[in-house]
Design a protein around this nucleic acid. Structure first.
Lengths: 239, 239
DNA sequence: CCAAAAGTGTTATGCTTACACCCATGC
DNA sequence: GCATGGGTGTAAGCATAACACTTTTGG
């Protein structure tokens, strides 16, 4: 890259061999308004100015990758308590038009409680942030659409094989709400009786004793038990 | 870092913010001598001089991550045809004592045929390379032991849920050999009749018509069919 | 003929699936 | 009293798991 204007910045970090920049991006999911939603931030600088993008940023030199993801989440959304796991590392040479950027994508599940309380931090540059239904995304910067598609696949897989669906719901929820999460993510209807039997048999739910009052018959509220998260599907293919 | 001796190298690549180095490391598995084996290379430069390490190296600025992994494999082992998938990205700040290095680990399965033919390329520096049983590893450089443990977990998981075990075997193999692979990786004995029934029912094997002659009753040889690799376990948790 | 590995079926059990009606409440 | 979502059981089919003996070959 050559000098074009007088706005050149100093470049004091020098290495023997060229190095890519490394970022983390976070795909933060929640379940709101009967929709699977993902948090996006509107860019107000080039490239992809005004387009929407995943929250994320550069990894500091002395910080672990997961710590970087947590820091970015905290800085941009005030969120600190979230289920987080590494998703995949995307590194096509041309994914950022400015320079080589390799991004380590993290996958996060946020409870609906926290999603409702969420205040997007007014960055130095007052960027807008909002939830978008994953089935109705705006045009996205970089390769972020592909990253989100990959994350949805992973989420789908997780709900099929684990009981982590409740991480997207408020602390107390009804079985119908939980079923709705599964149906939305898996994108297909499920049998009510079988769903309830299987969920209760998994032994990860307990009744809170409270009821969800509404227009109709009140529904029992449940919370998930501590062991629910550890339970990463122990079923074995061979006896 | 400050100048210490006259051996300082020029550092012509300069950036506005500090950047980590990015490498790929490859965990190359095969099945040899009734053991699950992984390829390691002996280092002959500090740090960790004389210790063993995973094959790998720096990602070029214009090359995709997977391409980098394939290039390193080709350069160090002449291997070009291999099952390869991204495993995980390891980035603790202190994993390399020299400088910040983030490594994208790739997981590779090599057929026993190719493992036998394998010639480790005499690098500019004549490094030794050899197979090691994963249950009997030498002391390893960096965090490579942890990376291998993670890869073995993933391999175990893959064999439980997919039929990819045969990627570790020669083109033609007996069912007993295949069972031995599964038993070794899963680290437990399997029932012979159930194993055979399940494998044949999966409809990914075909008889070659040849027999393995040996000390005892000859065994039918099989190869896997093309669809075997696509078959990434389609079973669904919900109906 | 003996040692060693190859090869082969059946039964019991438990899980998965499909399916339809009554219940409690608010309006 | 009616509309709406909450809540419940059973039977058939299928996959899994446990289990032991015969066959074929080389030496």
């Amino acid at each position: 890259m050559t000098s074009t204007t007088g706005t050149e910045r100093p470049r004091p970090y020098c290495y023997e061999f060229p190095r890519p920049a490394v970022t983390v991006d976070i795909i933060l999911f929640t379940f709101k308004d009967n929709q699977l939603q993902v948090l996006l931030i509107q860019r107000n600088h080039p490239p992809f100015e005004h387009m929407w993008a995943l929250p994320g940023g550069f990894v500091e030199m002395d910080e672990d990758l997961e710590a970087a993801a947590l820091r970015e989440l905290r800085e941009e959304t005030n969120i600190t308590d979230v289920y987080l796991e590494q998703l995949y590392t995307f590194g096509q040479p041309d994914r950022d038009p400015r320079t080589r950027v390799i991004t380590v994508a993290y996958f996060a599940l946020l409870s609906a409680d926290q999603a409702a309380r969420l205040q997007v931090r007014g960055q130095s540059d007052a960027r807008e942030a909002r939830w978008w239904s994953v089935y109705n995304l705006p045009p996205l910067a970089f390769d972020h659409r592909r990253i989100i598609e990959y994350a949805v696949q992973r989420l789908r897989w997780k709900l099929e094989w684990t009981a982590l669906g409740f991480l997207l719901l408020p602390e107390e929820f009804t079985l119908s709400e939980l079923q709705k999460v599964y149906e939305t993510v898996l994108n297909e209807p499920l049998d009510k009786r079988n769903f309830r039997r299987k969920m209760l048999a998994a032994d990860v739910l307990e009744e809170t004793g409270n009821l969800r009052e509404g227009d109709h018959r009140p529904a029992k509220l449940y919370r998930f038990t501590a062991k629910a998260i550890e339970l990463e599907q122990a079923r074995r293919r061979f006896p």
